[in-house]
């Protein structure tokens, strides 16, 4: 089912014009600066500085994903008890997943 078209109302004409015009020089500058990245100009210096610290990215993805899943089920609950149960289960899942991941070998490429 689609929503009515008034949700698709555009910002004012002047906001669009000013935004688009301001983004032209910013875009050209960014495109030129991007060149050094995509042609590999920064590659040799960067790869030597990569910090093999921990899998924080994965940590946030998993924990965030569990939290999001919990929020979906939390919204579907109609009773206070239901919401409380989902909240507690989600919190427990987030804590357990975070704890398990923090115990894992941080980097395993060989």
């Amino acid at each position: 089912m689609t929503r009515p078209n008034h949700h698709l109302r555009l910002p004012s004409r002047w906001v669009l014009i000013l935004g688009a015009l301001a983004l032209i020089p910013a875009g050209i500058t960014a495109h030129r600066l991007l060149w050094t990245m995509v042609t590999g100009g920064e590659e040799l210096t960067r790869w030597n500085t990569v910090d093999f610290a921990n899998k924080t990215g994965m940590f946030f993805i998993v924990v965030g994903g569990l939290g999001w899943l919990g929020s979906v089920y939390w919204e579907r609950q109609h009773s206070t008890l239901g919401k409380a149960v989902v909240g507690v289960v989600t919190l427990a899942a987030v804590i357990i997943a975070g704890w398990v991941m923090s115990q894992q070998t941080p980097f395993n490429v060989g």
């Binding site: 910002p11 935004g19 688009a20 015009l21 983004l23 032209i24 910013a26 875009g27 960014a30 991007l34």
Partner: peptide, 16 residues
């Protein structure tokens, strides 16, 4: 930032 900004005025189209 560089990847997104390089869209230039297209960024307005992307958001909308």
């Amino acid at each position: 930032v560089r990847i997104i900004l390089s869209l230039g005025p297209g960024l307005v189209l992307l958001v909308l």
